[in-house]
């Protein structure tokens, strides 16, 4: 089996290893890097459970090989909170609004929402739905997820006194 060296920056920390060339990025993150927060739902690019940020852009980590990410920076759900463990405003809003049930789609939803807020800090409701449309959730009917992103939008827009 062909193996190849890969260097990644994962949640700000360098990682390197030698992996089979056919190893997908999601399997690499879960099995080699040891970060199991990123989930696998379909392995064919539809559900979005495997979403991560690749140099800040959301990608489906089931659709690319680890070796393709060589030299790139990856953010997974484990990297969304501050280094001191403080939740990101989106994470906190997800908790506040109970934007999840089983939690399986949640890492992907959070990644999609973070990517949205990063490029558009004041998204409209339509923008929010558009940004989440590539991620499937079977538990929530999406409503509390949309509510959570709205809440985070509102809180982030608030100017501290």
């Amino acid at each position: 089996m062909n193996r190849q060296a890969v260097r990644l920056t994962v949640n700000g920390k360098p990682w390197h290893g030698e992996v089979p060339t056919r190893l997908t990025l999601v399997d690499c993150l879960r099995e080699e890097v040891g970060l199991t927060g990123t989930h696998v739902g379909c392995e064919h690019g539809v559900c979005g459970a495997c979403s991560v940020l690749l140099d800040g852009e959301p990608v489906r980590s089931c659709l690319m090989f680890a070796v393709q990410a060589d030299g790139r920076a990856i953010t997974t759900v484990e990297g969304l909170a501050a280094p001191d463990g403080a939740l990101s405003p989106l994470q906190d809003a997800f908790w506040e609004c109970h934007a999840l049930q089983c939690g399986y789609c949640t890492p992907g939803m959070l990644i999609a929402a973070h990517a949205l807020i990063a490029r558009n800090p004041a998204p409209s409701d339509g923008d929010i739905r558009e940004a989440l449309a590539g991620n499937l959730c079977r538990c929530t009917g999406y409503q509390q997820i949309v509510d959570a992103v709205r809440l985070a939008r509102r809180r982030m827009g608030e100017v501290p006194p």
Binding site: G37, V40, A81, Y104
Partner: peptide, 14 residues
């Protein structure tokens, strides 16, 4: 919810 929003759930694949 807290463990799920931080990626710390433990599913069977984990």
């Amino acid at each position: 919810d807290r463990r799920f929003i931080t990626g710390l759930g433990r599913y069977v694949a984990d």
